[in-house]
Design a protein around this nucleic acid. Structure first.
Lengths: 201, 201
DNA sequence: TGAAACATTGCAGATACTGAAAATTCCCCG
DNA sequence: CGGGGAATTTTCAGTATCTGCAATGTTTCA
């Protein structure tokens, strides 16, 4: 409707190639493990040169990680669009819900990705890493929201880090349960526990 | 007194070499950035072959990360040693305090390490999630503590992830402040906010 | 259609990392 | 002592990741 249709053949092919590489990478690594798959294997499966692979992704792992669901600008806007009297944690919850819905739109893709992560723990840090830029942006937005200067009280940093941890845990639970419950519900549940101060269950 | 003195020359040299490699790696990367330092540079600075470097560390990054905060067994023991009526979050706080004190014992080393992490964001995620093995172990201990089976409620996973995020944020604040405040106090502060449900400040 | 813009490719080369065997160092016991 | 045997380091060869560059296609648009 909006953005993905009105591209020239060139850009359409690029998106196609990128998606094909991501998909091939996930499939192959799910089957043979991270170490059992070379970049050449992936490139061959899509019938491009391995040099081309590196034009799309800076490393083998990056093809598995996939896009941060939303751009940092988008996250900032989303946070700023909320009324000022919404508490920070609630704002982070709402932001996370939107993310969760995005993930669910690509259910199969994400479940496969999470399975690969589970089987190749060395990738997990990368997942966090891809979020480190995101984390900065969200932290800044939270600071603005709560009228705190960055690097003083530590509140924005903490709230953001904790929210992202909660989101990550929800994703992993979702994956472990085979994508059965709604991810958004798991996210809500996690935030509810956070808001309650993580009391003993 | 207890463990580090009664080793043969051989083991002493091994520890020495390892420490020298870590130190050289940190120094060099602090000066030139992660990409500006090769394994050979590090090995040469210590006057060993680069193959020897890989006998000590599985990757260049691992030389920078430093020791696993504590052995997983130790963390488990520390958690299990606490009376059963100590709330989970409080138990995690106490565990984190001990970690914080350890870090402060090697103040200079850790401040340098954190500076390196700050300048090379790709390393950041490893800071606490050093191997997700630690996280697994702590999660398991928390589950046992709270009588919850792993993978059911998600509470142990959430509490652990959140606690580690809080610790990470405290470390970064500590580093940013040049190691001036007590790390343990920053950890306490973060846990207090968590326990309070992260209310707007 | 022709030219500018961009994508793909092959190639050369630097670096990360691994396995195996040779060379060295160290420990311990006779 | 001193030599046998174990641990450690080194050398060497090889595979894989990733980058820059120049050549070659392909798409776009005027």
């Amino acid at each position: 409707m909006d953005s993905a249709d009105e591209l020239g053949r060139r850009d359409r092919k690029k998106l196609e190639t990128r998606a094909a590489l991501e998909h091939a990478a996930l499939k192959l690594v799910a089957a043979r493990g991270l170490a059992g798959v070379t970049v050449e294997d992936i490139a061959e499966a899509v019938d491009v040169s391995s040099r081309t692979f590196f034009n799309y992704f800076p490393s083998k792992e990056d093809a598995l990680i996939g896009p941060s669901p939303a751009s940092t600008a988008e996250l900032r806007e989303r946070l700023e669009a909320l009324p000022a009297d919404v508490p920070v944690l609630e704002a982070l919850r709402l932001m996370s819900r939107v993310e969760a819905e995005r993930v669910q739109e690509q259910r199969e893709q994400w479940l496969l990705r999470l399975k690969v992560f589970e089987q190749n723990p060395s990738l997990l840090p990368r997942l966090v890493a891809s979020g480190s830029e995101t984390e900065r942006a969200v932290t800044a937005a939270v600071a603005r929201r709560s009228g705190i200067e960055l690097g003083t009280s530590g509140y924005p940093e903490l709230a953001t880090a904790v929210a992202m941890a909660a989101f990550r845990v929800a994703m992993i639970r979702w994956s472990a349960a085979g994508g059965r419950p709604e991810l958004a519900d798991l996210v809500d549940e996690a935030f509810a526990q956070l808001a309650g101060g993580l009391p003993n269950p």
